[in-house]
Amino acid sequence: MSAISIIPERCTGCQSCEMVCSLSHEGSCSSSLSRIRMKKWEEISVFMPTVCQNCEKPPCMDICPTGARKRPPGTDAVVTDEKRCVGCKSCIYACPYGAPALHPVTKRTMTCDLCQGQPLCTQVCSTGALSFVPEGDPSMERKRAFGQTLFHSMRTR
């Protein structure tokens, strides 16, 4: 089970991931063409990348009326079949993360396809907010980081 692991505390809001995603998939730079989106709340300095989590039980697949959302055999990514998609946006509303986005030109939804196993966003992210976990437990780094924080706070108490 491969996944993109997100640690929002490490995100600095540079939007490199958006740029590399749109550049590699669409050939031009724009946050509206990107599969990954950075959300920000600057007054509390919170930056958070949102990307398709490739759920085990994807609500977008259940709700899609034309069966365009599917997980092709051999991959972990849930993707939209452009020929079948009618742009009804149901998947956007059904997703608990709001991760699917509407392509501004083709008017079909688009989500992360994990770049065929080598996500570029995780390569450009220099703070470690995004990392690609090819197999195993994607939350392991998170657990470790939390454990370290806990250990640190207990030691300084």
């Binding site: 490490r10 600095t12 809001g13 540079c14 300095s45 450009v124 220099s126 703070t127």
Partner: peptide, 12 residues
């Protein structure tokens, strides 16, 4: 606490 960076910058 934490870092902040300019647009598309790896320096933070």
């Amino acid at each position: 606490s934490g870092w902040e960076s300019c647009f598309s910058c790896p320096v933070h």
